[in-house]
Amino acid sequence: MKLTLKIWRQASREAKGRIESLETPEISSHMSFLEMLDVVNESLERAGKEPVAFDHDCREGICGTCSLMINGQAHGPWAGTTACQLHMREFKDGDVIVIEPWRARAFPVLRDLIVDRSAFDRVLQAGGYVSVNTSSPQDANAMPIRRADAEAAMDAAACIGCGACVASCKNASAMLFVSAKVSQYAHLPQGQPERMRRVRAMVEAMDAEGFGSCTNLYECEAACPKEIKITNIALMNRDWRRSLCEEEL
């Protein structure tokens, strides 16, 4: 098949960007979406042009690096799938595909489809951890954890930090991302001592980075490639309110 790509091109953070139209060489339906971009880039390089810059690394849907807005959907049309796992059998000959970077004030574009997501790191620095130094803690089985709690923690911990939740939200809210981390620790005994302090600090950091607020549109849940649940946001809101009642954090 052959496709028309309408791709965001932007030379640098400061430069003005624009949508550029590109005709692809022959594309196989077995290719992954990123392999299609590889083929396009090879043809651009052969023609002496600069390839399209896009973030990608593991190509297994786990590192969270790839970050493409495909036809207006974060990671494209497949549910529970990162862009790198999307395959070209979804498309047909002659299709026009619009590819843009994540759009959010907190994620400035660095070049073409690559954005700066370091705001996520900074939110986690504010409290996304259990304060334990490397040492010889108690035996791992000394504290049994109810299986359902461990599973709930794991459901939240599956977040890959890609930023699709932010990109898909009209408010550019990071609440699904932040709440997933808050919720992982909230479900585990190890997370209890710092629970209130953590939620307060992370919410403050999230606001300081310029992410918007949640207005319950559920776009983030629909776009999340790891299908992180919106109920995490409810838990975070509850915990955050409780934290306001705690005098000493």
Binding site: P137, N141, E151, L188, Q190
Partner: peptide, 20 residues
Amino acid sequence: IIDQCVAQGVPFARDYGGLL
């Protein structure tokens, strides 16, 4: 290593008795 990771909140798989 296992002790350390559990202390950090790594959600390892557990059985119904709550053990790893």
